[in-house]
Design a protein around this nucleic acid. Structure first.
Lengths: 225, 225
DNA sequence: CGTATACATTTTGTATACGAAAGGTATTTT
DNA sequence: AAAATACCTTTCGTATACAAAATGTATACG
């Protein structure tokens, strides 16, 4: 089960991009990555081309690979598109899911609930929604979902605030919604899973908005009482 | 403007896959393609990996590249998904289109109207809808649209019947719908372009269904009069 | 002092050669 | 005679070496 150096290179780059350890837009140096992962340029370039096909990086002729950008325009389109794709995927997943897939989803959800760090939680959340994408068995929407999840995870980790009371409450609600989604998918209840998915989306959007647009400082410095 | 051997390899494989000259599922021989296009294995493999990222081919470890399959399951999912993506793209295109993009769309539509063969018409149709995809400026849905268009073009050419009166009428109606779509996009009329797009989809679906399920032979061999 | 051009350096793209793995066939054994 | 194993052939994966292109810098000229 030991992964090859090439596979490690792929999964590690994927992880670092999702964690914004490799920031959007930065150039990826072929020679440096070759040395870091102990592979030669040919397999490294294959990894980069695969990552490009999935939307993690962009390749420019004679300019190498850059981590996919995340400008304001990208975010705007992301918020516009996510509800449509997420709810469509959720509906299809409820209709098409198999028992082994459901078991896998429960396993990922357990990882999410047990996650120790915000980053682990974000990765588990990513896998949770990717698993629902698998269940939908729709290669067309899967391509859109994969790209949405990349940006969703990056946004979530970029706009992660310090562990506050409100933040803990949001995570607890997200976990509860995941459980409800699993139950609805198990019951093949498409309408219900779509409804929960849209609530789940609203929660995620609110969390990011809350970070960008926090409560203003009190106008009165000392208690006005 | 002369394209490099590598670019020619890419565009020619793309064309042959869309035309089902390379049938769904067939193995692509690396050595043969290298000889045919006059490039070595490294750039050829890059081309195949790029085609794989866009959904034209699938790559299996130690088994090389195969043209993306088109089984019954694929077709079912295709018919299920296309209206949603096409109409969403159309709406966004009407809202976001720029003047140069509109001019490009008119150019492609002129090529469609002037197409001499069914294959040329199918390619021009492909470019027409891909151009609307560009206008939408939505990388997430663009990934789904690209894959849908691949299968749509392949289906259209697979289920193309001999030039009959009915077929000519369908093509004329499709061309008229294209013109209406261009006008609606030019006017930024999102609701109208969505409506026409759904009509256009119904027409395309009917054409394919008509081929699969033609009028039955007359029950009376000679005139029953 | 600023700008343009030429050269050098760095990085990307391509070819070829070698090593490894999978599938098919033939031979041997039960 | 049938099945299993070993070997051979073919194809895929990786590394390295070479060629080409782009960018940055330095120098010279205006």
């Amino acid at each position: 089960m030991a992964e090859t150096p090439k596979e490690h290179c792929y999964s590690d780059l994927e992880r670092r991009i999702l964690a914004t350890d490799l920031a959007p837009g930065v150039d990826l140096d072929e020679a440096g990555l070759c040395a870091a992962y102990g592979i030669s340029r040919t397999p490294l370039r294959e990894v980069l081309q695969r990552l490009a096909g999935e939307g993690y990086v962009t390749l420019s002729p004679h300019r190498g690979a850059q981590v996919a950008s995340m400008d304001l325009q990208t975010m705007r389109v992301f918020f516009q598109t996510a509800p449509l794709v997420y709810s469509s995927i959720a509906r299809l997943a409820a209709e098409h899911r198999t028992d082994p897939q459901l078991a896998a989803l429960r396993g990922v959800q357990a990882e999410f609930a047990a996650a120790g760090s915000p980053q682990d939680a974000a990765f588990a959340n990513h896998r949770f929604h990717a698993q629902i994408g698998d269940m939908a068995a729709n290669p067309y929407l899967a391509a859109a979902l994969g790209r949405l999840l990349i940006d969703h995870t990056r946004l979530g980790l970029t706009f992660y605030g310090p562990a506050s009371e409100a933040e803990r409450d949001l995570v607890a609600r997200a976990r509860a919604q995941h459980e409800e989604m699993v139950d609805a998918i198990a019951a093949h209840d498409a309408d219900r899973v779509v409804e929960i998915t849209l609530d789940h989306w609203d929660l995620s959007r609110d969390r990011i908005e809350r970070y960008v647009h926090p409560d203003p400082l009190p106008l009165e410095v000392r208690d006005a009482v």
